[in-house]
Amino acid sequence: MKMIRLGKTNYKVNKNGFGALPIQRRNKKDSIEIIQKAYNNGINFYDTARFYTDSEEKLGASLNEVRENVIIATKTGAENAEDFWKDLETSLKNLQTDYVEIYQFHNLPFCPKPNDGSGLYEAMLEAKDEGKIKHIGITSHKFTIAKQALSSGLYETLQFPFSYLTDAQELNLVEKCKKLDVGFLAMKAMGGGLITNSKAAYSFMANYDNVLPIWGIQRESELDEFISYQENPPVLDDKLKTAIKKDKQELGDDFCRGCGYCMPCPNDIEINTCARMSLWIRRMPTQPSLSEDFQSKMKQAKKCDECRECIKKCPYSLNIPQLLKENIQDYENILNGKTIVD
């Protein structure tokens, strides 16, 4: 299996990182089985967050007996020192550990630095001095904040969206991380669920020896795919290159990644589902998306009054009201037996 060095942390990690956001949707028994199967097949890096409901608890229950053999990264969305310490203590309790290898600021609207008035970076340093964290990281969906973090020299890892759908701007971040010896954790490695070709995704990531993809794992079958590539890695051949080119043409640049940072909506619209429904229908079997539950969600989306609060919060500055309109129309066309025209 391929191992990489995670920047100046010096951790040697399996090229398959385990993203533990999706397991919050599974029951505890199933989650433990999936996580322990990952461990038993050589996966040693696990990424979670305080924001991911019971994800930390499930990791703690799964890995407590092999704690010294794994690397755990978690995150805090705290914007002040008091909440930082509350989050850290809760995370350590949930994870059944005295420390975490990497503690990350989670998609904050600014890049924490010493003497910025928030007290956050000072709290990170104190937690590091106390041995509760080993390395300091940051996650973001915004290029400007990621760039600030790298320029500051304060961070040992950067977690940022990266997949074969990304452009030169993201590639520049990867190159800069390599130059600065900052570990690069690739979130949204499957395009927020819109990439369905795991072979293409894996073979693309193999070209970057300083990038650790964080695959969001919810089902055992998904895990099995990535485990199989450890011994038989797919090669980025002409067939896979053609598949990547097709995906990039179909999705374009203004698609919703499903990150959910636009939420909550004042009109109770599930934006991260409704704003990309037509992409789901194009790329996956339509029947699950036509259930009564999804129809109800799309009906609710009609209540968008274009308050634009979602646009302010969207890391990609998408025109979400317009995306909702387009997706509602596509969805109704499907329900009425019409074909979506690209």
Rank of each mutant, 00 (worst) to 15 (best):
C304M: 04
I320D: 07
I340P: 04
C177V: 04
Y39M: 09
K199R: 07
V100A: 11
V341F: 14
G119T: 04
D129R: 14
Q36W: 04
Y11C: 02
H106R: 07
E225D: 15
I195M: 06
D247A: 01
I71E: 09
L158G: 03
E68D: 15
F84E: 13
K297N: 02
K302T: 13
I340R: 13
L88W: 06
G119Q: 02
K302A: 11
P266K: 08
E122Y: 01
Q322I: 09
R276A: 01
Y52G: 08
K176D: 13
E170F: 11
D167M: 07
K128I: 10
D268A: 14
E101T: 06
G260M: 07
L223T: 01
L92E: 03
K241W: 01
A127M: 05
I281N: 02
K297C: 04
K188F: 08
T196R: 12
T139R: 07
S228F: 02
K338M: 07
E82N: 10
Y164A: 02
C304N: 05
R50C: 06
L240T: 01
L21S: 13
V211S: 09
K86Y: 15
N69D: 15
I217K: 03
R276H: 03
I281K: 09
T139N: 11
A78R: 00
I340Q: 12
G42D: 09
G77F: 12
Q322V: 13
N327H: 00
K113M: 15
Y39L: 11
I138E: 00
L158M: 03
L6M: 08
K312V: 15
F110G: 05
T139F: 10
C265P: 06
H135T: 11
A186C: 05
E101R: 03
N16V: 13
H141K: 03
K299R: 10
D181T: 07
D268F: 14
E130P: 05
L165V: 02
L236P: 04
S296V: 00
K312R: 15
Y46L: 02
K245Y: 05
N115V: 00
I227F: 04
D305M: 14
Q287M: 14
F143D: 00
E292V: 08
I340M: 15
W280M: 13
W280E: 14
M263R: 08
I43E: 12
K245I: 00
A127F: 05
M263D: 11
Q329T: 06
A81Q: 13
E220N: 06
D238P: 04
L212N: 10
V13R: 05
E130D: 15
C259M: 11
R25Y: 11
T9F: 09
R50V: 07
D254C: 12
E225F: 00
A38M: 08
L88R: 06
N64F: 15
A73L: 10
I72A: 14
D116V: 08
G216T: 05
P22H: 05
I320Q: 10
L173K: 04
I281A: 05
I102A: 11
L108I: 13
S278Q: 10
Y39I: 09
K142P: 00
K15H: 14
R5I: 15
Y261W: 10
E79C: 14
D224G: 03
K29H: 04
A49F: 00
I269A: 10
K134V: 08
I72V: 15
T286L: 14
Q36F: 06
G252D: 12
A61L: 14
E33H: 09
D47Y: 01
Y11L: 10
F184T: 05
C256R: 01
E292D: 14
E175Y: 10
K28N: 14
